[in-house]
Structures are given as structure tokens and as C-alpha cells.
Amino acid sequence: MRWFLEGDEVSSRFLSEQELQLNSIDDVNAWKPCAVFVPGNVVPSFIPGLKVAVFHGFNAGKINRRGRLDHFEIRGCFDLYCTQGPETTTPFKKLADKYKYFEVVETGWPTLDPLFENDESNPYVDHDDERPTILMCSTFSRNLSCAPILFDKIKELSDKGNWRWLIQFHPKMPQEIVDKYKSLQNDNVKFIETDNVLPLLKAADVMLCDTSSVLIMFLMLKKPVVTFRNQSPEPHLINITEVDDLEASLMEALHMSTEHKVRIENYVDHIHPYKDAHSSVRVVEAANEFLDVGENKRKPLNLLRELKLRKKLGYWKV
């Protein structure tokens, strides 16, 4: 196995000593991968191998500029979609019937495997602090982010000292917002910059969020989420639209009702029913089975996307 990392949002410093990196498209092509696992939306056709979509998040209900659900946008890049659960499997199978050139296998999401493994230690758990822990996460999108709007209220609530706050934002969050929240840090508030949110999710009792897909990962632990002006305010969320309702909604989450627990459990089973930490294994098995018995069907030609990817990667060889 080899890694090819592209873009400013990823860094090789997160690879372990055992993980080897390919540094160019020429290196990738020389390696001749039989399968390419992509946690993104696109992959160049000039890279060889079976193209497998493993997703970089759950369906958070975000609508793209074409007015369609972005999670189910078909871009003509993949041979195999490894879906997370019934909620995504059913729509993708319908799309597979429509487009005819890719397959769909429900595997669960590999990213969540560590979420269901036992941790020997968690750096964000403070065993000497018995206060409830609130984890605030927010997307960077100006139209969706709760961070700019809730700052004053978060400062007010954190100053009370009733709860312990952990705050983590999307890497693309504007720096001025990040700096404002960093200024809140004290014994009640810790701002955390990390590429691995899973320990944070395990450490918190309640999440405060907006329309970021990270909230779905938190729900997998069957813990409550308070959202601010969520685009799809489903019953498994405690959604508010007014800043002044925040404290009461967090109190409601900390004293979650049996009915709300059931709503979360039903939602989780529909989104991602796999709790065995073996989704990665199922993805590899699905790819191997496709390679053994499947037939790569010709994907649609998209010259504009091909040119954009070649320009982005600086690769013009045939």
C-alpha cells in the first residue's frame, strides 16, 4: 500500500513510519496500483487502477450550487462506491441502475473504525473534572457556520464555569474566527487544532454544531447534538434558531429523554449500523471481489474535469 497526498489540506507528517508516500503522478503510475481508495469527490482517470469512493464524511444534507444533494453527486470518476449504511446505499444503488457504469457495496465507513475501538487513554478526558463536557464544532461555510453568531453567548456560558468546553473547527475556518475563540481559553475552555476528531467525540457528553457532517459521527456514539440553524433539523437533533435558546437546549441535551435516545438509536442504525470496527476490512474485501469478478465499465468522458485535474497536478503525459 502507498499514499498519494494532494492539496494544502493534507500533510505527510500525519503518516506513520510504516506508511510510504508516492510524491508524484509519475511515481503513482510506476507503482501501478490495482485499486485507488479515494476519500474525496474526484480522482484522475490518468491514474491506473480500480477507483473506489470511500467518502470523507456523511451526508449532512448540504445542497450544492446545482441545487442537488452534494453527497449524491455523480462526477463520473468511480468504479465502486463503498457506502456507509442504508441511508446512502439505497440512493447510490438507484444511481448505479441509472448510470450503469459503477457498482455499490455497503461496507460501513472506515474512518469510524477507531471510534468503536477501546482507547487506553484519551488526551481530552479530564478525570479530575466532574463537570459535563460540551464539544463545539463548526463548519467553515459562511452561510452555515454557527461560530461567528454564537461567540458572545459561548463566552457568557463558559464564564459561568458550569461546563467544560472543548472547541474544534473545520481547518478552513477563517483565521479571525479561530483567533476569537482561542482568546476564550482558560480553565473552562480549550481550543483544539487536530486532524483526528475521534478522541474529542469520545470525550464529550454533548455536541454543539451547525450543519457540519461531524455531528453525525458524534451521534454514532448515541450521544445528543444541539444544532444551530441546521439545514435539515431532523427529530434526532435538538435544533434551535435563536441564540438565547442555547443554554436551555444544552441543558435539555444533558438530561436527554428516553424518547430522544430512541430517536438517535433509530437514526444511527439507518445511517451506519456497523459497530464492529471492521469497515476497513469490508472495503478491501469489496475491492478485491470487484477485481476478481467485476468488469470495469467505461466511464463518461469529461474533458473539462480532465484538463482541470491535469493542470492542478501539473501532469500532461498521455
Score class of each variant (00 low, 15 high):
Asn23Ile: 03
Cys137Met: 15
Asp126Cys: 15
Tyr101Pro: 02
Lys180Tyr: 02
Lys222Tyr: 15
Ser45Ile: 09
Ser16Leu: 10
Glu306Met: 08
Met173Leu: 12
Leu50Met: 12
Glu306Val: 04
Cys137Glu: 05
Asp292Ser: 15
Lys93Gly: 03
Leu208Met: 07
Pro224Asn: 01
Lys155Leu: 13
Ile47Gly: 02
Glu306Ser: 14
Pro110Met: 11
Pro33Gly: 12
Tyr181His: 06
Leu219Ile: 02
Leu5Thr: 03
Arg263Val: 07
Met220Val: 04
Thr194Phe: 05
Arg131His: 09
Pro224Ser: 03
Val105Ser: 03
Tyr315Arg: 04
Arg263Asp: 09
Leu221Glu: 04
Ile264Trp: 05
Gln231Ile: 14
Gly67Thr: 01
Leu219Met: 14
Ser213Lys: 08
Leu198Gln: 07
Val268Gly: 01
Val10Cys: 08
Glu285Cys: 09
Asn288Met: 09
Met220Ala: 06
Cys146Tyr: 02
Asp276Cys: 00
Tyr99Cys: 12
Pro224Gly: 02
Glu234Thr: 10
Asp244Val: 06
Ser158Met: 06
Asp126Arg: 14
Glu130Tyr: 11
Arg164Thr: 05
Tyr101Thr: 07
Thr111Glu: 15
Lys299Ser: 11
Ile240Cys: 06
Cys209Ser: 14
Asp292Leu: 14
Lys172Pro: 10
Leu200Thr: 03
Trp163Ala: 05
Glu252Thr: 12
Arg13Val: 10
Gly294Ser: 04
Asp126Phe: 07
Ser279Arg: 00
Val283Pro: 00
Met173Asn: 04
Ala286Tyr: 01
Pro39Lys: 06
Val206Phe: 08
Leu254Cys: 03
